[in-house]
Design a protein around this nucleic acid. Structure first.
Length: 119
DNA sequence: AAACTGACTAATA
DNA sequence: CTATTAGCCAGTT
């Protein structure tokens, strides 16, 4: 088919992130994998940066592989993500780290159903 | 059009 | 634990 790149990948990422239940978190790599972009964790972060607040994407539920909030370019957002997560019931470690083993979203129960329309 | 940058991950030392 | 290397893709200059 014609050009199906760029925004198409973003759409999957938004879809997956939007599936993350409240009180849980997912890593960039995980989102990328669920979006069918396994290995493209970088794109996930990039897509989330472009999503802005215009959409209802819970970008705050996406953290890096260390279970910590990644340092972003905008210092004004510093601490905002953590506050949002805490408001959802996420617990942070003393180092501002989240217990992945405890809050990691495990898409194997019945979520993620939406599936993707691609092979 | 080429080069650079960026909300990443994983492996290796 | 830190440091380094490699891979990935899109947007900006």
């Amino acid at each position: 088919m014609a050009k199906q790149t760029g925004s198409d990948n973003y759409a999957r990422i938004y879809k997956v992130v939007d599936k993350i239940p409240r009180g849980m978190i997912a890593t960039y790599g995980q989102v990328a994998d669920l979006a069918g972009l396994s290995g493209h964790a970088r794109q996930v972060g990039y897509a989330l940066h472009a999503v802005r607040d215009e959409l209802d994407i819970p970008w705050q539920r996406v953290v890096n592989a260390k279970g910590e909030i990644s340092p972003r370019s905008e210092p004004m957002m510093e601490g905002v993500q953590q506050s949002l997560l805490e408001a959802e019931g996420i617990e942070f470690d003393k180092n501002g780290r989240i217990s992945l083993a405890q809050c990691r979203w495990q898409p194997r129960l019945c979520s993620v159903a939406a599936k993707d329309e691609l092979p």
